[in-house]
Write a protein that binds this DNA or RNA. Structure first.
Lengths: 349, 349
DNA sequence: GCGTTCTGGTTAATCGTTTAATCAGAGCTT
DNA sequence: AAGCTCTGATTAAACGATTAACCAGAACGC
């Protein structure tokens, strides 16, 4: 039961140098009144002893754990790697650790996950909420990354503006009939993206929307989206609300013999990992996750510093939306005669 | 500076019930000697007060934080969501939290990330090592998830066996010339998978291997893999060592007008998120990440319980490999006459 | 020369939990 | 009745860091 840690602690440094623990603590934190030379000497000695402060001791005394929680609706989300990476980076440069909690898609599991984090004593947390769920405020500051149009959102990518970018791009290429392909109508993010696309269209343009989950309820998951038929109906551009759906559309169209981008264009959202390497590479719109994470984390750490009350609260940031950036690749091209040879079959079904 | 936590602590419960803190602690942990009725009363009262033990206090006293670290070579890895989800689940059912650390691909950053975790006082950690790097053992038990053939591996999917499954599947479909498509020749995981494929082939089969990163060094990243040419050379099956490369192959072939699976077959590894929804859906081989995570975590917690010494050590488990499961979908089919019409162009280059 | 201020430290309390050591009383033996 | 054990609790000492409060001595003003 050698339960004492191996590394030196404050008192070991103190006795070894013949000073008091308080002085060592002050020297290292630069808080109390210690002479310059002594500070130097203590820091040097601490360094060569390889001193690492006990988070437990510090946490117990200060009431702060130095850890942030990260709650995700569903870790399996392909966007998650970028989010986690960005949050972890922002947090660790701010001196915080990141504790993850997965809610496995379930809504009740989300509050459960939040509770787990609270029990572990996180100082604050970043929540990417599931669908349109509200955060039953936990016992610590909470930053929400959702979409700017949702109340309670701390900071997020400007999904609406991202949609505008896509619409503008497609408009510039001459496309007039666009099929928006989304997964879930209840997702506020996807709705904002779709709204953005519609708002960015010129007056002479027209868009229909296809929600995959509804289609799959009828036809079964993984079913065909019937996009070849949509091509025959005159749609020349398929704007998916996520790269995953864009990929699905892309491969379905390719399999049906539709050439991209010669015949039709396909665009996505998020610039996920496969987007640059598929053929044709995917035109998409990217969110600056690093910046979003940095804003969220600093809003959180500010709230932690100044929070005198322990009630849960949703933190706010000066900037609540971060622009998305259009990445033009090969899956989008001018709306040209390439589609003509498919048009004759109109109104087949 | 209301630095005292809001929730009740042991002493509040104790005074409120007129007993000592020790008794409350014993009653809740079931360790000391407390009468049955008193245990009941204390637990009840603690519950209705919403008592949550202070991890900081406990950690300070016991020297255990109740937190595991998770170190990833590169969080952006598309496999990461599954890993993180599985580890988090296994850890939280074992009563542990999970602190993440990203090494952003860099090898030096990996040790840095490990140090960050140690400083935060993790009781142990799970490391998915970068390429062939060895873990410079940290000051806590470490479980390594790599591949069974690597020394120091705690537990991992049986990538070699997974390769055999693929080879067997393709052999049964009549394929004789296989192109293995990998990303990186230095990856021990990819090497094991490739070896597995070769070992699982029948004597009359032949396989070549294409390493993408080498190709990209010459032709630039995102370049064509020249697979259409390979089809003309007589390859009828493309076995990628990851679904990401499989997807790349699939789309490149489709764009070149090659029909899958009629003309050639494409297979992958890992059953990543897009695999079921692309057209044609991807035949792949899946690892049982939940089981791997559970084995790794329980090996870790065992080591933590019994560890009297604080030196770092690589833990071992009874089972060091978990079988992979073949998922047959639509991207693989019989090697048939479908390829014939492309064969006449043999030896063009 | 005596009160005051400033400097550079020390003392001691505290955070909340665990756990070894102790202790009061009941029941039992001889 | 003295000694013993057993039960059910209490006491007190950690764990390691932070920080308010205190204190000795030097410098200084008047």
């Amino acid at each position: 039961m050698a339960q004492s840690r191996p590394g030196p602690n404050l008192s070991r440094i103190a006795t070894s140098l013949g000073v008091s623990v308080a002085t060592v603590s002050n020297a290292l934190s630069g808080k109390g009144r210690v002479s310059g030379q002594l500070i130097e000497k203590i820091r040097e000695h601490a360094a060569e002893l390889g001193y690492i402060p006990s988070q437990a001791g510090r946490a117990l005394r200060t009431g702060r754990s130095g850890v942030l929680g990260l709650v995700l609706p569903d870790i399996a989300n392909p966007l998650f790697p970028k989010i986690a990476q960005a949050i972890e980076f922002a947090a660790s440069t701010a001196g915080y650790g990141v504790l993850i909690a997965d809610s496995r898609g379930d809504v009740t599991a989300q509050t459960e996950a939040i509770n787990r984090l609270v029990e572990r004593g996180v100082d604050g947390m970043v929540v990417i909420p599931r669908r349109a769920t509200r955060i039953s405020s936990a016992a610590c500051p909470v930053a929400v990354i959702d979409t700017p149009s949702t109340s309670g959102n701390t900071v997020a990518a400007d999904h609406w503006q991202g949609g505008c970018e896509i619409a503008g791009h497609l408009a510039g290429l001459g496309h007039r009939r666009i099929l928006i392909i989304g997964n879930n109508q209840e997702s506020s993010v996807q709705n904002d993206r779709a709204d953005g696309i519609r708002s960015g269209m010129r007056p002479d343009m027209h868009a229909d929307t296809l929600w995959i989950d509804r289609l799959e309820q009828d036809r079964g998951s993984g079913c065909s989206l019937g996009l070849a038929e949509k091509v025959r109906q005159g749609f020349t551009a398929f704007a998916a609300l996520s790269d995953l759906q864009a990929l699905r559309a892309l491969t379905e169209l390719q399999q049906a013999g539709v050439n991209i981008p010669a015949d039709v264009s396909v665009t996505g959202f998020d610039d996920l990992i496969w987007s640059p390497v598929v053929t044709p590479s995917l035109t998409t719109v990217r969110m600056d996750m690093d910046r979003i994470a940095e804003i969220a984390v600093s809003a959180l750490t500010d709230a932690i510093k100044t929070s005198s009350t322990w009630e849960g609260m949703l933190v706010t940031a000066d900037v609540d939306r971060v622009a998305m950036q259009l990445i033009v690749r090969q899956s989008s091209g001018p709306c040209g005669p390439g589609t003509k040879n498919l048009r004759d079959g109109e109104h087949v079904g």
